[in-house]
């Protein structure tokens, strides 16, 4: 992957993000910039706040302090001329979310719908596409993730890797500007990890902007334009994979890599 020119405007811009869960300070002032077409991999030990950061990028968690901008648009709030923030109506937030695709560790496919219906549902309900249009798009995407022969299967009849690929197709069906991946291969049997990573690599090659929380160091090294290492709610180190993974400067990064490699 060749790094995108630094001049392009950021797709995601996180400034001074703080998140408290009660008394627990999970994010302690995180800054993050992701440029269009960039693949950003977030690494870090459990409890470092990386998943929380990702969930803040589409308002599944609401920041306690700081801001998230997607393509310059403030997430969750409207700022008036005097600089006062006004919370957006849930419908407006839902609209913002529809532009941001998310893939979960445990897939969260809708179990009462077939693979095809899973991919069709939000296109019809949210984007108001016609059934035929949504179906055509779903068929195309399921073929792309290699599941053309599994469209009429319910999630319970699919392997973990197949379910995760349906989940990716479901998110892509919304034509998102950015895709968020929350440990997409952590719940998979080892032999099924490869098929999901292959789909993600293909997506990266097509120029999708991606933020990926993962423990797959190999994937990070191969695909990431930008690697962020987090620990205890702060970004410890960031830069290209060749730097953060192969020549880490911080003790904590070295320590973590020694454990996972």
């Amino acid at each position: 992957m060749s790094p995108t020119p630094a001049s392009s405007a950021p797709m995601v811009e996180v400034r001074e993000a703080h998140k408290m869960f009660g008394d627990l300070h999970v994010l302690k002032g995180v800054d993050l910039t992701v440029r269009p077409g960039e693949v950003c991999v977030v690494l870090g030990p459990s409890g470092s706040g990386k998943s929380t950061l990702l969930r803040c990028l589409n308002e599944l968690e609401v920041l306690t302090g700081g801001s998230v901008r997607i393509e310059g648009e403030l997430l969750g709030y409207r700022e008036d001329a005097s600089g006062t923030l006004h919370r957006l109506h849930p419908t407006a937030i839902a609209k913002q979310r529809s532009r941001i695709g998310m893939v979960f560790q445990r897939f969260h496919l809708f179990p009462h719908m077939t693979a095809l219906e899973n991919v069709v549902e939000a296109q019809v309900q949210v984007l108001k596409r016609s059934k035929a249009q949504a179906r055509a798009k779903a068929v195309e995407l399921l073929e792309r993730v290699g599941l053309s022969d599994r469209m009429d299967h319910y999630p319970a009849q699919l392997s973990g890797g197949q379910q995760q690929r349906v989940a990716i197709a479901r998110a892509l069906a919304m034509d998102p500007e950015i895709m968020l991946f929350d440990e997409p291969t952590s719940a998979l049997d080892p032999e099924l990890v490869g098929e999901v990573l292959a789909v993600m690599k293909d997506l990266a090659a097509r120029g999708m902007t991606m933020v990926v929380v993962t423990h797959e160091i190999g994937f990070a090294r191969e695909v990431a334009d930008h690697v962020v290492f987090m620990d205890e709610g702060v970004v410890v180190e960031e830069g290209p994979a060749s730097q953060v993974i192969d020549a880490p400067t911080h003790e904590r990064t070295k320590d973590f890599l020694a454990h996972v490699l």
């Binding site: 599944l60 529809s98 998310m102 979960f104 939000a122």
Partner: peptide, 27 residues
Amino acid sequence: VDKGQEEAARALGMKESTILRRIVIPQ
């Protein structure tokens, strides 16, 4: 119904009433 179902639906941009009607109640 698993909380993850609501989250997945919300992440797709569904409104709360749609989530209840299409995702939560059928399950």
